[in-house]
Amino acid sequence: MTEVKAELVGNVWKVKTQAGAQVAEEDELLILESMKMEIPVTAPRAGTVKEVRVKEGEVVKEGQVLVVLE
């Protein structure tokens, strides 16, 4: 199981995956918005999305778990 965490504080601009989806390494899981930049969050490895823990528009903290892969 791999937890994909926010690298910096920001808000969730677009969620681009869902539970059950198969992802390859480097696939975009969601896009954060911070410092007026769109910051893609990508899969650190291939796997299945077990859980998406955030919703669009939600503010996230640095280190907060966004997506869980298995």
């Binding site: 690298e7 911070s34 410092m35 930049m37 769109e38 893609p40």
Partner: peptide, 10 residues
Amino acid sequence: QPMQKGGVLD
């Protein structure tokens, strides 16, 4: 590097 943290400086 805009690809990482939007290129913001920390």
